[in-house]
Design a binder for these strands. Structure first.
Length: 574
RNA sequence: CGGGGCGUAGCGCAGCCCGGUAGCGCGCCUGCUUUGGGAGCAGGAUGUCGGAGGUUCAAAUCCUCUCGCCCCGACCA
């Protein structure tokens, strides 16, 4: 392709809206443009990258025995009402009515649609197992879209759904997908890690997320060096404390703590470490208000809390609710003498002695409060996030934490959907059985964005060869006939040799072309100019290393062919 | 949803506090020169100052409403 045939609106300065590296570079290199919050147009260069990622996914999905189909974006409310997700999915589900006032939504995921297809078309165990996938635009009306393609509202996703006769079959499909995902992300040039994860709105029995390790990741992963344990903090179990503190209980005392509302303020004022505090958080479930006790240095895990309460949504109680429940303004809630609401305590709480808690009165805390004597809870269980320094739940060491970008997620669904939607088949005995399902997603655009997060320098993108929009950026830097003839010749030869070539045929200065080439990030740059040609050579620059090699035009293709296998091997400046 | 911020030329921004009819850099167009890491000179085009209302002789600037976008938080107890 010639640049004159392609819209590649590179930007010297990044638009102010972009914060993260990948978002900035995608805008600057002319890959995407925003249409509305979380909604983007893929420009020609961006689309080429997307297509590369898609093709890798197709290859590996097909290889793993899945078959491609395409489901609609819009789906009728009835199917969603069947599984209950019409209500359960909340505001993320973008709903609308057609001209007949029928309810529809834009598909955020497709379990309902595929399960409906299955129950209509599949009758016999002889047809199983099955695994369907599609690469399709999804719409989720995110609370807060951000970081360009990283968290859009409209985005491309590969989703796959497997149907099996039994659990063993489902596990086999799950494993196949798990392995396929490893190959896909490896081929995309990503450094990633599979971790145990929560199943969220999809539901099911268990799941793994594929996390690209990057500072800008929105997820936190905890893991052990031994490699046997890795999980999203949302999901990671926390072991109960192994012993109760062995200290004599001191008498309970009420102290004045003027204006000390936060953990920081209280610890600073009373000069006690935060793990000597118990914080009391009030949550509203919609039906009731509950108090949750966790240690001052711990964070409530709202997913664990929701499960404990058996409700889909919770939120921190507002100031009015807090005053009503505790009799004090926000900042002074505590379990001592707290009546009329349910109290849930993290399992770490009973092991503590002589702690600081809120006094349920303005500017007041209790010190030396003790479990059993001064306060207790209706329930004690694991309610907090795992954090670095905790012992691993697999007892294989101490946890470390890192940030990750979730690019893929595989779920064992079990019969959650086949049950509610009555997706059954007849087994060899003629007995009606529920299909055992799995589902498997990959964020296509997010994978591309994650790749930029891991592969860039201060000059621009450094695409891994398999997903680069072009393999070679061909850059003539002189406008002589000699240079032009050589460029035309190399353009033809390189393409004939199977390379995807972007020929910068603009009438621009060399510096402009070099800078755009570095920004766009093709793995190789081939520079043709009078200076080199006078000595019978052209120049090959490897984008990742910046190393330039002078080769004769005849050697060029051989040189590139032998360089391709190593081009992604060198570490980026990151 | 809460908090903060921003909407002025294609992009990045100034002007707003203290009202007087819009500017800078880059980009874009024309010409000449230049041509191996974002060229020089000369000339030129481009704005309903996000939108609506109000105050005023006069509004980008003050007031009200509204729309859009961005950031932070949702661990504050």
């Amino acid at each position: 392709m010639k640049t004159s045939q392609l819209l590649i609106p590179t930007l010297r300065e990044a638009p102010g809206e972009a914060e993260t590296v990948s978002h900035r570079l995608m805008l600057r290199a002319g890959l995407i443009r925003k249409v509305a919050s979380g909604i983007y147009t893929y420009l020609p260069l961006g689309l080429r990258v997307i297509r590369k990622v898609e093709q890798i996914i197709r290859d590996e999905m097909n290889r793993a025995g899945a078959q491609e189909l395409l489901m609609p974006m819009a789906s009728p409310a009835e199917l969603w009402k069947e599984t209950g997700r019409w209500d359960f999915y909340g505001k993320e589900l973008l709903r609308f009515k057609d001209r007949h006032e029928r309810d529809f939504c834009l598909g955020p995921t497709h379990e309902e649609i595929i399960t409906d297809l299955f129950r209509r078309e599949v009758k016999s165990y002889r047809q199983l197992p099955l695994n369907f996938y599609q690469i399709q635009t999804k719409f989720r009306d995110e609370i807060r879209p951000r970081f360009g393609l990283m968290r859009g509202r409209e985005f491309l996703m590969k989703d796959a759904y497997s149907f099996d006769r039994d659990d063993a079959g489902a596990r086999e499909n799950y494993q196949k997908m798990y392995d396929a995902y490893h190959r896909i992300f490896t081929r995309c040039g990503l450094t990633f890690r599979a971790v145990e994860a929560d199943t969220g709105l999809i539901g099911g029995n268990s799941s793994h997320e594929f996390m690209v390790l990057a500072e800008t990741g929105e997820e936190t992963v905890v893991y052990t060096d031994s490699g046997t344990f890795a999980a999203n903090v949302e999901r990671a179990d926390v072991l109960p404390p192994d012993s109760v503190e062995n200290t004599a209980s001191l008498p309970l005392r009420s102290v004045s703590t003027p204006n000390c509302r936060s953990i920081e303020e209280v610890t600073a004022f009373l000069k006690v470490p935060s793990h000597r505090l118990v914080k009391t958080l009030l949550y509203s479930t919609g039906k009731e208000t509950v108090a949750v006790l966790v240690r001052g240095d711990h964070a409530v895990n709202e997913i664990k809390l929701k499960k404990a309460l058996g409700v889909p949504e919770i939120e921190l109680a507002g100031p009015a609710t807090v005053e009503k429940a505790t009799g004090a303004p926000v900042g002074f809630a505590g379990p001592v003498g707290l009546k009329g609401i349910r109290i849930l305590a993290d399992q770490a709480i009973p092991a503590l002695k002589n702690v600081v808690v809120g006094g349920n009165q303005l500017d007041t805390h209790y010190i030396d409060a003790n479990w059993g004597r001064d306060f207790t809870a209706d329930q004690t269980l694991d309610l907090r996030n795992a954090q670095a320094g905790d012992p691993s739940p697999k007892k294989d060491g101490i946890l470390k934490a890192t940030k990750g970008i979730e690019v893929g997620h595989v779920f064992m669904l079990g019969t959650k959907y086949s049950q509610t939607m009555n997706a059954t088949f007849l087994d060899a005995q003629g007995k009606e059985c529920l299909a055992v399902m799995g589902c498997y997603g990959i964020g296509v655009g997010r994978s591309a964005a994650a790749s930029i997060e891991q592969n860039h320098d201060d000059r621009g993108i450094i695409w891994p060869y398999p997903i680069a929009p072009f393999h070679i950026h061909l850059i003539p830097v002189s406008q002589s006939d000699k240079t032009n003839e050589m460029t035309v010749r190399l353009y033809a030869e390189l393409q004939a040799a199977g390379f995807e070539v972007l020929w910068d045929d603009r009438d621009d200065r060399a510096g402009v072309k070099f800078n755009d080439a570095d920004l766009i990030g093709a793995p190789f740059q081939v520079v043709v100019g009078d200076k080199g040609l006078a000595e019978g050579v052209v120049e090959v620059k490897v984008r990742r290393t910046g190393i330039k090699t002078r080769v004769t035009p005849t050697e060029l293709i051989q040189h590139l062919r032998s360089a391709v296998p190593h081009v992604d091997a060198a570490p980026s400046s990151h």
